[in-house]
Structure formats: C-alpha cells, structure tokens
Design a protein around this nucleic acid. Sequence first.
RNA 1: GCCGAAGUGGCGGAAUAGGCAGACGCGACAGUCUCAAAAACUGUUGAAGGGCAACCUUCGUGUCGGUUCGAGCCCGACCUUCGGCACCA
Length: 818
Amino acid sequence: MVARYNPQEIEKKWQQKWADDRLYEVSEDESRPKWYALTMFPYTSGDLHIGHWYAMAPSDVHARFKRMQGYNVLHPMGFDAFGLPAENAAIKRGVHPFKWTMQNIDNMRRQLKSIGAIYDWSREVITCLPDYYKWTQWFFLKLYEHGLAYRGKAPVNWCPTCQTVLANEQVVDGFCERCHSAVSQRDLEQWFFKITKYADELMAHNTIDWPERIKIMQKNWVGKSVGTEISFALDHPAVDDKEIKVFTTRPDTIFGVTFMVLAPEHPLVSKLTAPEKKTEVSEYIKRSQRQTEIERLATDKEKDGVFIGSYVVNRLNNEKVPIWVADYVLLSYGTGAVMAVPAHDERDFAFAKKYKLPIRVVIAPPDWQGKELAEAYIEDGTMVNSGQFNGLPSKQGIEAVSDFLEEKGWGGRAVSYRLRDWLISRQRYWGAPIPMIYCPKCGIVPVPEKDLPVLLPEDAEFKPSGESPLKYNEKFINTTCPRCGEAAKRETDTMDTFMCSSWYFLRYASPSYDTAPFDSDKVKHWLPVDLYTGGAEHAVMHLLYARFFIKALRDMGLVGFGEPFSRLFNQGIIIAEKQKMSKSRGNVITPDEYVSELGADTVRAYLMFVAPWEQGGEWNDSGISGISRWLNRLWKLVLAEYHPSDRVSPETSKKAERELARITHQTIRRVSEDLERLRLNTMIAALMELTNYLTKASERGEVSQPAQKEAIDSLLRLLAPTTPHLAEELWQKTGHSYSIHNQRWPGWDKELARDEEITLVIQINGKLRDRITVPASITEEEAKKVALTREKIKAYLEGKKVSQIIYVPGRLVNLVVR
RNA sequence: GCCGAAGUGGCGGAAUAGGCAGACGCGACAGUCUCAAAAACUGUUGAAGGGCAACCUUCGUGUCGGUUCGAGCCCGACCUUCGGCACCA
C-alpha cells in the first residue's frame, strides 16, 4: 500500500527546506543567460484573493520553466504600498496607515509564500518605506532638473462641505462619497510631468512584443491627430492678442465657418464678453463648471452655449465670425477654441440648428444638387463656395489651404494629442512627499539630494473629512530655504502612486543599494524585464507611465534602454457564479481555504487548466476536484511498484517501448511549446494525457522496468514548474537526489517523437467517407492508390467520374467527382 | 457613437500556414466494489434517424451570403456578449 498524497504535509516541508537552502535566491551569474520574469506587484489591500493567485501562479510556472531551461531567473516580489485605502482605513477605523499597510503586508507575504513560488524574498521592495520613497523623490528631482516637471493649474474635485479635494473614485455621480454634497471643480497649482514630450515615441511599439490590443489602446490614449492650426483675426480693445488660434483636421472646410466656439475656461472669454452679455455668460460658465462631473455621465447631452458679443475675422474670406462659448469644447485639447463648420461637423450642425446659425455647404457630397443638408456631411468631397480652392477634392484641399495659410503666416500644419501631461500632485497624506520648498524670497526650491528623504511625519492627525494631515503639521511644513536659509514652507502634496510603480522593477536589481536608486551594473545585467505579466486594467496608466519614465531616464543617461518590458502578457480575470468577485456580492473565492484543503499545487494547476490564461474563466469547485483526482492518480502511478509482465513477447515489448518513447517525447514537445507560448490549459491537458497513457501502459506491463522509469522521470520534470512540491516529493521518493528544481528541462528527440503510422482521411467532394491507418512514410502515389481501392470508396464512385484528386501529405486524399 | 476582443456539446474549453470538429476536464447516465453511502475504478455521453451487431446515414462551430476540391478558421453584411475611450474639433 502506497502512502496517501498529503499535500499539506509535503508542501509545508518543501517550502521550509527551499527557504532554508535559499534555493531561489539569485545573484548575477555570467555563465548563464539571465531571465527577468516580473509579475505586477500587488497593492497592499490586506488579503490575497484568487485573482492574485491567477496573476502569480502561472507566471511562477513560466519562470520555473525558464529556470530549468538553464536561465538565471530573477523573479522578485514586492508591494505597492502607498494609496488612498490606507488613509480611508485610518479615518474609518483609527488605524495609522503605516500600521494598516505593514499588517496587510505581513499577511499577504504569508499568503504569497503559500503559492510555492520561486520569489527571491531577499529582494522584496515596499514602496512606502523611506529607503524606497527616498528614491522616488530623487526621481522627481531629476525630472525637475531636466525640465520634465513643471507647475501648472489644474482642476480638482472639490467638496465644499468637507473642505477637501476628492479623488475621482470618491465622487459618486457628481456627489461626495462621504457627505453627499455636490462636488465642484476648483483650480489648484499642481505638479505635472511632461509625458507629452514623448507622445510620438510612446505610440511606437515596434521593438517590443506586446499584445496588439494593448498597443492599440495606448495609441488611442495618446490620440495623435494631424491637422492645421489656423488663426482668426481679432481686434478688441480689451485684448492685446490680435488673433485666436484654432486646431482643425479639416482646413478644407475653412470657408464654411459660421461661428467660433471657445471652451468655458478659455482665458479670453471674460475679456471678450460684451458688457450686456456678462451676466448670461458668467452664469453659463458657472453652470457648466458645476455640471461637468454630473453631466459627463450623460453622453448625448444637448449642446448648448452662449454668444459672447464679440467677433473674429476669417482671414480667407474676411467674414465676421461671431464667438460663442460652449462646454462641448475642451480647454485641454487643441487650443481650446474651435472653428465651427456646421455643414461638415455633427456637433456644430446640432449647435447651429439650435441657435439658428447659418449652415453653409463648402464640401459637396458626390451627387449634391445644391440643396440644404439634412445632417452634417463629414466625409470627403469637392470644395465649393471656397473662393480660389473651388473644385479641389478634400484631400488636396487640406494641403492647398495649409500651404496657403503657411505662406500668409496665418497658421500652419500642427499636431494635436489627446494625451495630457501627467498630473502627479495628490492632496493626500499616504504618499511620497513631493520634495519641494516654497521660499518667499527664492521661490520654488528643490530639496537638495543630500536632504532626502523628505520623511512623511508619523504623528498625523486624521480628520473625518479626509483632508490631508500634512497641511496642519507645523513641524513638517515649516523649514528653511536651502538656498537662502530663511524660513520657508514645504510642499504638502504627495505623489501619485503610479510614480512609485514606474520604477520599482529597477529597484529589484539592487534592492538595498543606498547611494543611488539602483546599481547601474546590476540594472545593466537584469533589465529590461523579459516577461512582464499582469492585468489589462493597467494597459494605459501604469504601462504608459513606466515607459515614459524609462525613456526619460534613458535621455538622462541613467539607463541604456528605452523600453522597460520586452514582452508583455495580460491574464484574464477569474469570476465566480458568472460574475466578477466582490465583497458586496459575497462570491469571493479565498485561496487560503482551498490551499489548506487541497494544496497549493492543486490550486496552481487548476488555475492554469480552467481556461486560456489571457482569457480568464469561472472558478468551479467540481472543476478543481478534477485536478485533485488527477494528481492523486499520478501520485499512485508514480509510487506503485511496476512489474513487467512475463507473458509478453520481445517484439511486443519492443513495440510498446517505442510507443512509450514516442508519446513521452511528443508530450515533452507539447508541454515545452505550450509553456513558451503561455498556453497553460493545453499544457495541463498534455500532462494529463501522458498520465492516463502511463497508467494504462503500467497495467499492460509490456515495457521494461528502465523504460517505464525513464518515462516517469520525464513526467516528473515536466510537472516540476506546475506542481513544484508534488514533483519534488515524488522525485525524492523515486530515488533521485535533491532537488528536481535544479534539474535540466527534458529535451525531445525528433526521431523518437515521430509518428510511425497516421490516419489517412479519404474525402469525396470534401466529405469524409473513410479512414485508413497507413505508414507515415506513405507516398502520394500509394495514398491515392489505397484510396481508390477501398471497397467503401468504390461504392461511392459507382457510375461517377473522378475529375481531380487532391492529396495533403500526412492528412488526406480528396476525390473530386461528378 | 468610436476602437478592440470573442461567439464551438448540458458546462469550462480543444482543434487556425483552410484539411478527421468536440482533445483534456467537469457534469450526467450505467456498471464494479459496499449492508448502504461516500471515495475509487470501468464504460457511455453533440443532435436526429437506421441496424441483431462491429457499425451506417443525415445535420451540426451566433445569423445570412460568398470564395474554395474542402471553411469553426478566409471575405462581405448583420446579431449578441465582454473590455477600452467617451463631445478630441
């Protein structure tokens, strides 16, 4: 009788041993190629849920596979530890964010260890610790030094009752999550990073192996559009500027401009508003400011606006163009001003209809008879009513008008991006303080490098309103100016946590380096990350910010590469009961209970088997029991004593051994290829098939003892990445020396894996009619002959003429008959 | 609205340089073992029809068309679901 498979016991035992032996600690080793396998580090929410496992376990399997292939694998783990939830916990439950976060980390580290991954814990990184955020602040200073950080005005969500700034997620349908007052917009001076400087480069993904989907999302996010800037002449006593610029992708419609629209926040609005319009305009602006957040949710909101009583002149035809203000124009895009061409833009059309503004056709649709348009015609066409440009097709018109504008100095070709600069200021406590000082004499002065880190004070007083305690911390705020030595004040805003995660992957290379954020040699050795895995929810923010960061560091000469992640893979999501897991639905799967009942190996294998990794799937209790059954069967198979039958002839035995070798080598090939491509569900299926085959073969007893043993050894090594504990235990129990995880990944022999026989399919007019087992070496001639001599086929051919025979080597013969 | 992904048995999913649809697993049914149950093991399992039987026939990959000797896979139109962006001038 074989001892039962007892995962609890063996998993604990091996995890302890691997840790004691520091089996997975890694250092630079020039004799082996390096492999940097990184999983997005988790936010310190408190509990590791099954989604974390779904991110971590399969990537560990792949990393282990690479390790057995002979790579020196760096597979680190850490914690994204700054952020709003810690502060909410402080307000709600009176726990200090630091304490709350570190407790969560302790718990999550314990849970992470239960996965049985090859994490090198000696490299752990925690972003909220001063020895980490010191360098986050250092990067801020570097970006500032290189002109990539600047101060600008930006609106924030403001709750008038709490007297505080709210994050977007604290605004629910336009109301404060806490006190339910209406949230308004307020301009604050804040810090920005010039990510737009890299807009073009961020759209280029040609050197990296990323999912097409993510690349497209990033491209859309950057949203480059090529167009023309056109200036309209302005002559107004209150304004020095003699022009207002607009951006358009359709300069060919310039003669169709019948009004101009400014964004409500446009700086010229107040100056250009005629005295008799003041009340109306300021009311409109107030309303739109108040409504933005609430109304933003309503997609097809009716376009409205107000005429401000001033005009510009369209220089191409010297027409007076009335200026309106309307909130469908955004200050943050283009120039914040739009030339309205109602005949050829849907929004302008609706607006013109509503306010009875003229609609002039300047691009003729193909069969246009000169009639009024029922709706905006936004396609290309032929220019009409456009002076010297009449008759030009749109495409040529765009060029001709742009040339003309450039000649006259009235504008020219321009590019506009949807991407905006990265606003990194947060009016929060639990983040890395922005290392800046405001001196009444010297102005804005960066904290000198030697004074880093600017420590987050521990004695923080949390107000239920959610206001940042830093603002009221006298000890923190009051400092002296590093330049003149006079009394000065510190910046009280902290940094966006995306800043912490934009460089953590560099820190893993030298996690305790204390004279710089990283040791250049080590970064040179390990980076870029060879395979980065994580959820697609980070497609644009985190992944774009990290790419920006690296490009900026490259231009500063700090790193020698421009892309942080050579290959990216996004896993799907695990759902339960057809729905996303959430506490409120009460359908959260907690891995701990499954681990303690069935073992980590079973959970690991199940997560890989349940669905393609990139797709995600539904957690199902009876599904996991299938994995559990398989591993139990496998356990018994490996440990059962194998006795070859003595009633087997040498020929039978030889044939059976050849088949066994073939199946084994085919499986090695399938598993290796599936792992490479991260097709983990079919990899598990291949392992199950080999297990099933070996079980049957053992019963037959046709192969010799050594042949059987060789097959089992291969199976165990193939299993090692997926079920590391089980494989280690069985490796030891079958008499091998510790550790299976230092074994070489099995290779496959092409010759041994080759099929000797194939099933030849015979079709008539593409329909399957017969199957024959033939030697794999069959020639085209023979295959056709065999097909035509089959009784079944003959019956079908009765009285018909074969007009064509199609042969697909190794697969089929298709007879085309009439 | 725009961009992107995906629709295959009762269920999760296999199969794409166009070539045996349904691998592997779950569930279900039947059987072995048992006083009984659980577990385990064995067998059957896309649908409809036919045959005593090994088997045979027809239909079948969201819908409708097309290309091809041959389409789950390619092309066109549409439907549905999911993800992303939401007035981008």
